[in-house]
Structure formats: C-alpha cells, structure tokens
Simulated assay, not measured.
Amino acid sequence: MNDSAREELARRIAGEITLSDDPGATLRKWRTDFDVSQTELAEQLGVSSSVVSDYESGRRESPGIGVVQRTVAALLDIDEARGGDRLRQYARVLSAGFESDIVHDLREYPTPVSLEEFYDAMDATEIHRGDRDRIYGHTVINSIQAITRLSSEEFYRLYGQSTNRALVFTDVTRGESPLVALRVVTPTPNAVVLHGIEEEDLWDHAAELARVDGFSLATSTRDINGCLDTLRDL
C-alpha cells in the first residue's frame, strides 16, 4: 500500500473516531475490524491494556486527536507487520471511490474460482444455479447503504475490474431491493449472495429474477467477519 493511500485511510479512520458520538465504541469497531486485540494495541502504543479498555468502554475521558492519531497509526503498523491484508482491502475500496461503510471488500482473484469454492467460503446455500460456474472476483456490499446512496453509475463500479464476479449484499431482510436494483445494471454478475437471511425468508420472486437474468443466487447467515477472512484466501 503506498503512503498516500495509507494516509487517506488513516485520515478517514481518525475522523470517524473523533466525530463519533461514542468515540470509544468506534475505536473498538476499528480495532476488531483489524483483528487486533487490546493487548496487542496496548503493546504497540506502549501503554497498559487497561488504558485501551478504559477508552473503549468510556471509563476514561474521550481520547483527544493526538491519542486517536497514534492509535490509528498503531493499528496500521500492526497490520503492515502482518503483511498488510487489511490495508490492501481498504485501499481497493478507497481507490474504487467508495466509503468503507458501503463496500466491505472488493477483490480480484489471481485465477478463476468455482462457485462451489466461493459458496464454501461463505457457507452459502444455493437457491438457483445460473449460466456461469466460475467467478473472477467478489464485492461485499452493505445493501442498505448501496441502494440509498449510490447512483446507477456508481453501482456499476461495484464490479471492479471484472463483471464476472460475485456480489455479496449484507444486511438483507428479504432480498427484494438489491435484486430489483440489479435489474438496472448491465451486465449482471455471475453470482449474487444475499447475506443475513435463511432460504425460507427470501423474497418469493428472488429465484425467478435470478433465472431471468441468468445469475446464480444463494443465501448465507455465516458471521460476515468470518466470511471476509475466508474470502481473503481465495
């Protein structure tokens, strides 16, 4: 990850923490998102783990901008020391022009991946098998944020470098909105996974829409962070 991308990500994280109504909770969100324990973060900062705990719980006065900036830098340093997976993930999202609360991950694969491999990573249940059985990347999207905030042109950019990919929509209740939204985007993805619902909760017309548009459709209720961790290994 280049310095400018790291600086942009650090600025965004620090700004979100500083402007939050609950800075401690927002700090905890980013720490857990980077899969860093309180102990690891405390060691990187040179403080006791109780200090980190106190900030996150609100027992200690909200951290000032200096503390926030040092904490964000520590999270990024830890990730870089591990190989920089989280940094690269956010860099891809930022370079595509999206906020991280809209797009959780945007990734291209070095070689094609079968739908079976992808479904295994998502612990997904297939509802309909489409015309294509391989994908070349994935995009994991917050369905509510994408539908309410993205234009049709921005929606198309979710495809990244290849339209032959899987789109995963999180925070789904029935699946109607994302599937209808896809109808205005051409071409369609190879596969769509609706995350957060069981098969029996799916919109009645979902499978038929997938059949008409030719993409595979599946559902998944696996923990989204676990999904993202497994997808990074594809």
Results as ranks from 00 to 15, higher is better:
202 L>P: 00
170 T>K: 09
191 A>Y: 00
119 Y>K: 07
62 S>G: 10
218 A>H: 04
228 L>V: 05
80 E>S: 05
117 E>I: 05
234 L>W: 03
8 E>S: 03
1 M>S: 14
103 V>L: 08
2 N>G: 03
101 D>K: 09
227 C>Q: 01
76 L>I: 02
51 V>A: 06
176 E>K: 08
14 A>L: 09
199 E>Q: 15
189 P>G: 07
73 A>D: 11
5 A>E: 08
171 D>M: 11
127 I>C: 01
224 I>Q: 03
158 L>E: 11
96 A>N: 02
165 R>F: 02
143 S>N: 09
66 G>H: 04
74 A>G: 08
217 L>F: 00
175 G>F: 08
81 A>K: 09
133 D>Y: 06
99 E>T: 06
109 Y>M: 09
169 F>E: 04
150 L>C: 13
208 E>L: 14
201 D>L: 12
16 E>A: 04
108 E>R: 12
70 R>Y: 08
76 L>A: 04
194 L>Y: 08
229 D>N: 15
6 R>A: 05
200 E>H: 11
12 R>K: 15
9 L>G: 02
96 A>H: 00
107 R>D: 07
115 L>D: 07
162 S>P: 06
134 R>M: 13
74 A>Q: 08
39 T>K: 13
91 A>F: 00
93 V>S: 07
151 S>G: 15
124 A>F: 01
100 S>T: 14
15 G>H: 02
144 I>T: 13
58 G>N: 13
34 F>I: 01
48 S>H: 13
85 D>Q: 04
164 N>P: 01
31 R>T: 08
13 I>N: 01
53 S>M: 04
78 I>F: 04
195 H>W: 11
67 V>D: 03
201 D>P: 06
